[in-house]
């Protein structure tokens, strides 16, 4: 439900991403990516779908992406949020 503390996940390798999360009163998602020009829209969609799936409605997320595929984005967001002690609402797979 809530991001209760700062956390991060991922690495700076190519095809990976870093996800930084921290508590905030609104939901903010900031995306930096080596393929921002081509994929910012898809990355944002994916991030939002993950947040919805995990029932996160507020917090600040910063993504620093190096061309990760969707599965890696899913994994790193989930890892960061679990580390931030989010209580999981569901475990359904993102479509």
């Amino acid at each position: 439900m809530d991001i209760t503390r700062k956390a991060s996940a991922g690495t700076v390798q190519s095809s990976d991403l870093m996800v930084f999360v921290e508590p905030a009163s609104t939901l903010e998602v900031d995306i930096e990516s080596t393929v921002k020009q081509q994929f910012e829209g898809l990355i944002r969609e994916r991030v939002m779908a993950n947040l919805a799936r995990l029932g996160v409605s507020h917090g600040r997320l910063r993504i620093s992406d190096r061309g990760a595929l969707d599965y890696a984005i899913d994994a790193r967001i989930e890892t960061a949020l679990r580390r931030a002690a989010v209580k999981m609402e569901t475990s359904e797979v993102v479509p």
């Binding site: 996940a9 599965y71 890696a72 899913d74 994994a75 790193r76 989930e78 890892t79 679990r82 580390r83």
Partner: peptide
């Protein structure tokens, strides 16, 4: 460890 198992799962 936590990150790797989630990554492998998603992969």
């Amino acid at each position: 460890k936590d990150a790797a198992r989630i990554l492998v799962r998603k992969f």
